[in-house]
Design a protein around this nucleic acid. Structure first.
Length: 282
DNA sequence: CGTATTTGACCCGCGC
DNA sequence: GCGCGGGTCAAATACG
């Protein structure tokens, strides 16, 4: 296809991210989508989800705004392109706090027991990426182990469930194809990696756009494989410090686990993949 | 032999 | 209460 860049707008128009979350929210009623889904789990003790809490108004905002691909400078192959957004559910901090340890135990005992006290179940931050790709499983720098697959209602394509193979990292992701456009792969990440990417040990080595993009993408758990990653976000981004990136539309990234800190320290590198206004905007 | 994938069963939440 | 759909587990299997 030659309309690679055009794909972004195409995706935005024909496949509003909201619909993704609408369908990925299971039975839960998340009229707002992203903010509700903003989880309150703090793997790294970075309370960025609290920050997300401060932006309750999403319904009044337009569903999404797509970022110009140029802003990312991704030299990815024109084969694929992806857009992204994030979500998480909003829960009571207290409930989470109290729940965390208990939940940890319950987690080990799997879900045989009720893990939620009186709140919605999922509380981990979630990022959804729509990637125009022919391969289902995009390489994002982490190793994933498939633990399940389910058929998706209203879709001929199954949804696959992956879990990060790192023992201390319980990041999960779902991969499914859009039934409206089979060439689009929707990848939803849940949770945050507590470790650097095993496949991308030195992000700032090459200094090329690709390298930094991949490094950052890997850090964020974004699909990299021949994919052009576009981020959906709203106008403002409380990008307070380098440890947490967060768009108030729910695009939240906890980069606390990032060991390749040089990447975050150097705005230039980040600029390679993150829109400039996203870095400094407040 | 160790690791990853497959796949049926099970559990849970939600809507009716 | 029941059925449905989503999410996860774990035994079996495949693969290196």
């Amino acid at each position: 296809m030659e309309d690679v860049l055009g794909n972004s707008s195409f995706l935005a128009n024909s496949f509003p991210l909201q619909s993704i979350f609408d369908s990925s929210c299971e039975g839960d009623k998340f009229p707002l989508g992203f903010m509700e889904l903003l989880g309150a789990q703090d793997f790294t003790s970075t309370p960025l989800f609290d920050i997300a809490h401060q932006f309750p108004s999403l319904e009044t905002d337009p569903p999404m705004k797509i970022e110009s691909p140029d802003a990312f400078n991704l030299p990815a192959t024109p084969n694929t392109s992806s857009i992204s957004s994030a979500s998480s559910d909003a829960v009571n901090d207290e409930a989470v706090k109290v729940d965390e340890q208990e939940e940890d135990q319950q987690k080990t005992k799997k879900q045989l027991k009720p893990k939620k006290i009186n709140q919605k179940r999922q509380r981990e931050p979630r990022f959804a990426f729509m990637t125009k790709s022919e391969v289902d499983h995009l390489e994002d720098g982490y190793r994933w182990r498939k633990y399940g697959q389910k058929t998706v209602k209203n879709s001929p394509f199954p949804r696959s469930y992956y879990r990060c193979t790192s023992t201390s990292c319980n990041v999960k992701k779902r991969v499914e194809r859009s039934f409206t456009d089979p060439s689009i792969v929707v990848t939803t990440y849940e949770g945050q990696h507590t470790h650097p990417s095993p496949l991308m040990p030195r992000p700032s080595l090459g200094g090329s756009h690709l390298n930094s993009a991949i490094a950052a993408g890997a850090a964020f758990g974004m699909p990299m494989q021949r994919a052009q990653t576009h981020y959906y976000h709203h106008h403002q981004h409380p990008f307070g410090n380098t440890l947490s990136a967060l768009g108030h539309d729910g695009f939240s990234i906890n980069a606390g686990f990032l060991h390749g800190q040089s990447l975050l320290k150097d705005p230039g590198l980040l600029q390679d993949i993150v829109p400039s206004h996203m870095l400094k905007e407040e």
